[in-house]
């Protein structure tokens, strides 16, 4: 196993870069990070639509969430990879395809998490904002969302670990991320699949375990802050 790491560590970390495309762990992290960054505002909009007044916007958001939740991510990736170039008339980068598919998929799930954070807040928070004369936008962006998102940080971080794991599906459409690179290593080494995929599993485990530990730390911090055990000096 050590021999594999010694021979392929650079490939595992950055793929063929600088002689070829960036790949490996770096690509996995970039896909995951970019996906989360793009997903987040989309999910906030979906959550606002889902928790807002009934109407056409809410119906569209409901339809989007129910549709996406009813199909596998792999199908979404295939659809984006094969069907979208046919529709738009030119090929698109595989990594971009993967990010788009993950963003669409995770927007539905992350949107539901944030929506749960919004509906979980006491009704009095909205009423207090309304009684002060605050309109919808300041009420949501200054009062409701900061609290709702704060309360669902563990859920958001959990979705990040899911995104990291889902990025491995990029190997199917030849995105040079971590799993794809390890598949290449497996093709070279042929007789060591147990070790190679053991290393792959270990890397994913370390990434996701570190994130879940960070989540636990955040949960403890949130809990102590809300019970008033930590005095936070607010900047006014």
């Amino acid at each position: 196993m050590l021999e594999i790491i010694q021979n392929y560590w650079l490939l595992l970390l950055i793929g063929e870069y600088p002689h070829g495309k960036l790949g490996g762990l770096a690509m996995t992290l970039i896909i995951s990070f970019v996906s989360l960054i793009v997903t987040f505002p989309c999910a906030v909009l979906i959550a606002l639509a889902r928790t807002g007044k009934p109407g056409i916007i809410q119906s569209i958001a409901n339809g989007f969430v129910h549709s996406v939740r009813a199909i596998p991510l792999l199908m979404l990736i295939f659809w984006a990879y094969f069907a979208v170039p046919m529709i738009i008339g030119f090929p698109i980068d595989a990594a971009f395809t993967l990010i788009v598919a993950i963003v669409i998929y995770q927007t539905a799930y992350l949107g539901e998490i944030i929506a749960a954070g919004i509906t979980g807040l006491p009704k009095g928070q909205r009423e207090a904002a309304a009684a002060l004369g605050l309109g919808y936008v300041p009420t949501m962006f200054r009062i409701i969302l900061p609290q709702a998102i704060f309360n669902v940080i563990p859920g958001i971080v959990n979705q990040l670990t899911t995104i990291i794991k889902e990025s491995s599906l990029g190997s199917i459409i030849a995105v040079s991320e971590l799993s794809y690179v390890m598949l290449q290593v497996n093709s070279n080494e042929v007789t060591k699949p147990l070790q190679i995929f053991g290393i792959l599993a270990a890397v994913y485990f370390v990434l996701c375990f570190a994130l879940s530990q960070a989540t636990n730390w955040l949960e403890r911090r949130i809990s102590s802050r809300r019970t008033g055990q930590v005095v936070v000096e607010a900047v006014a």
Binding site: E127, A129, A130, L132, P138, R142, P146
Partner: peptide, 30 residues
């Protein structure tokens, strides 16, 4: 509503804002 002060039984302070930020909020946003 901004011309009528309203006080609730359960206070309904905004827990993510400090005391002074709670009081400042209407001045900043309205």
């Amino acid at each position: 509503r901004s011309g009528i002060g309203f006080v609730f039984q359960q206070f309904n302070l905004f827990p993510h804002l400090s005391v002074v930020e709670n009081v400042m909020l209407p001045l900043l946003r309205i």
